[in-house]
Structures are given as structure tokens and as C-alpha cells.
Design a binder for these strands. Sequence first.
RNA 1: GCGACCGUAGCUCAGGGGUAGAGCACCUGGUUGUGGUCCAGGAUGUCGCGGGUUCAAAUCCCGUCGGUCGCCCCA
Length: 455
Amino acid sequence: MAASKHVLQAPKGMRDFFPEDMAIRQHLERAWRSAAVRHGFEEIGGPTFEHLDLFKIKSGEGIVSELFSFQRSGGDTDYALRPEFTPTLARMAASKGRSLPLPTKWFAIPDLFRAERPQRGRLREHRQWNVDLLGAPGPDADAEVIAVAIAALRGLGLGSSDVRVRISHRGAAAGLLSACGVVDDRMADAFSLVDRREKVPPDVFATQAAAIGLDAQGVARLDQIAACRLPATTPPATIAEQQRLPVESVSDLAALSLELDKRGLLPFCEWDLGIVRGLAYYTGTVWEIHDAEGVFRAIAGGGRYDGLVELFGGPSMPACGFGMGDVVLALLLEERGLLDPAHGVGTPRPDVFIVSSGDDKAEALFTPLATSLRDAGLHVRHTFKAGRNVGKQLKEASGHHARFAIILGEELANGIIVVKDMSSGEQAKVPHGDLAAWLQRRLAGHAAERPSCEP
RNA sequence: GCGACCGUAGCUCAGGGGUAGAGCACCUGGUUGUGGUCCAGGAUGUCGCGGGUUCAAAUCCCGUCGGUCGCCCCA
């Protein structure tokens, strides 16, 4: 069968990763993994696809149309590529039952799939960093997962002027909606409406608000309060007082505020009761991380979901965590100029590029030398072209950004190898037997600027 | 699922019924033992794919596959 052209393109919304793309992805994953491990989280993994029904437990039948689901040829079991990691995590936690030590701190970096129309910041396959803290009910746990997220972003060069954690709380939001006139049994609809507030034209918003018991005055008040974002340095009690909300509705936020302050995170945070993120699922704190200007989609989203593990058949336990995707994050880093070699992003630079003058002695030594230097732990490259023009080989070395070129030429007769520092142009004559040690000594000086993933 | 715009050389794009173009990148030479700069020369296309209109289609029309950006949704 001849290959038709469209089959030779990546499927819609899927990405190819060339070396420079992998360098970016590894840069993100390095920062994620480092932040998680420093905060005491352990990495887990799970299957790329699960039983289709697993994904219905948390999200209902409506999720199915947004999944890539399938049956094995000839089989009748429904599977689906995972659209999120949380069900797998909850299944894993539930399967340990009461033997799971609490608290348990887990993270994962899965690729996730969803059958949606791709658009800016949303693709059909992406990597998402998931961090979950199981078994800890207090605000210190909420603060800790926020701290992990911020630590990773800081590791990528983003500061408090670049990103903002917008924090809300189910209790505070419910108090707010009650004060605006929403009755308790329409609360879920009200959350849904608030979540769409910025995307719905004002007149449509007013019409829908009326349907859940909000009069014009209530809508106006809701709109004003929900649009109001305050620095996290504002005490939640003050907000409750100003907005005439019950003080107990913000008690969790007040406790969280203290924990954030201990960690120096208040400059990164703000209170934003307009964040609801499907509050039917979250049970307490809810937050999203956005770029400070709010021009991109959310970089991360998380919160507290104490009913999760029980929902998946495990013991009841408190839980909080978040997910952070690679797509929006990379867009922001690119826009901020944080994806260049100065920030540790790039394909690995060769330590040495071996250049042969082409004479017999050089050709005989060429491959054994490359092998011994590689065995010594060096990143070694050389030309594969037939021509042994020294100038062309140096050009190739330069194109690969090699740190040193070693030139095998007539000096070999005296056991001498010429080593050229490609950035300074300086050349040294090094005895053949000393070469590996000499290079390692000189390369140690470059260690600080070498990506940390390299040995 | 709905809508808008886009698809031409490896890359970024110009050309909008009449011979397929530019810049960058690439290759060769100047320079068979010294790179990034420079100079000269060279190669490169089913104009995404399929169909239609026309004497003639990269160009106009329909469909399709991709891409981008909005909606829906965002677990």
C-alpha cells in the first residue's frame, strides 16, 4: 500500500519532538521532578490507558465523547487513553487500602490525551505534572502543594512578577453566592455560571443568573465581588467583613494565608473568588496559576478534594494536589525569553569533536580514540563524511557547538595530539596518554554551565 | 459538535487566471592542517490532497486532510 500524504503527517493535535523540542520538554520535566523531590514527593507511574469506566467514576458519562476510547480487535472490553491521571492515582491509593502510610506524597509526569479541537495552549496530547498529597487535612498541606508548584516555576526562571496563584475556596464562594441570593440547591449551577463569567456576554450572564435565583441586584453584587481580585496580603477576615460574608466561610483561607506566609509565598498569590474550577469535585481550597497579565490559559490548577480516594473504593482520606501542563507553560517561558541556552535549555553540547587530517596514523587512531574517550565519560562526536578536510571538520565541530576539537595529524609521530578550545581558539599540544585526563580537567571548569541532566 | 483565517523550496514567506519566486539554510569552490565572517557558483518543488470551471488553475468553486485562533468543554 502506497503511503498517502496525510498519513505521513502527525494526527491532529499531536506533536513531533525534534531534538530541540525534546530539550525544552526535558527542561520542564527536570524542573518539575526537582521541585517535587526536594519537597519529599515520590514519583509514581501508571498505564497509558485504563478501563473506560474508570474515567466515568469522577466525571460521568459526559466525559466519553472527549476521550480516545477503543476496543481490542476482536475484543469487547472498552478502554480509553487517560485524559487525566487522577483516576489512576486514586485507584492506586485505594488499592493499598489502609496499609497506605499517611500522609502519602506522590507525583507523576504522564502524557494525557483528550479528543478535543486543538487551540492555543491546548493539544490532544500533552504532558502534565501531577502532585498529590494524601492523608493530610490541614492548610499546611494545601500550602505545601502550592509551594511545590511555585518552586518548579521559580526553577524555570519565573518570579512573582510573572505568575500568580489565584486562590479561592468552596466555602467562601458558597458564602458569597448565598449572600447574593442563591439558594443552596442551585449552588452547583451557580458555580458553573461563575466559572463562565468571563466568557459569557453580560446580558446572557444576567439571564442565566436570574434562572438560579439571582435578581439584578444580586447579579451586580456577584459580578463586582467575583471580579475583585485582592493581594494575598489582604487578611481573609477583612474580605469577609467588607463583603458581609460569614467569618467562618473564610476561616480555611485565613489559616492557609498563615501557611503561605511562612513559606514566603504571599507575593505569588492573590484571593480570587471567581476561581471555581468545577467546585462539585473540589471540597475546599481551589486555585489556578496564571501568567501575571492573564493572557494565557491556566498554567496549573489544583485544590483540595477530600472525597477522592473514597470515590474510587478506598478508605476516606483527605487529599489535595494539582496538575500542571507543558503546553501553556512552554508558551509562557518562550514569551519571557526563558527557553534559551543561557537558561539551561538546549541539546547536549559535545565535549570533543575529533578531527582527522586523513593520514594513515590519524585514521588508525581515530575510532579507538573516540571509543576510549567515550568510555572515560566524554561526549564525543566526529564527522561521518568521507573527506578529511580539516577546515570542513572544524566547521562541523563548530556547528555542533563542541567545546574542544582534537586534531589528529603529523604530531602523532611524537605521540602528540593537538587540542583546540573552540570558544577561545587556543591550541595546546597534549601527549596522547594524558588526553582524557587533560580534557576532563578542562571540562570541569565548564561544569557550572552544563545542563544538570548530563553526567 | 460550530465558526473564521491559513497551507507555495528544508525554514520564513511573496505571487490572487497566462513560463515557479525571494531571503535564510544547504552543497561546491576560493582554502587538500584550522571553524563561526566574506566572495563566487550550484541544487531544490505533484504550489497539502481529490474533484470541478476554463483554451489555460498555485490563483476561481466544491470536498477533504492538516495548521492557527475563537466557541462548546476543560475531568
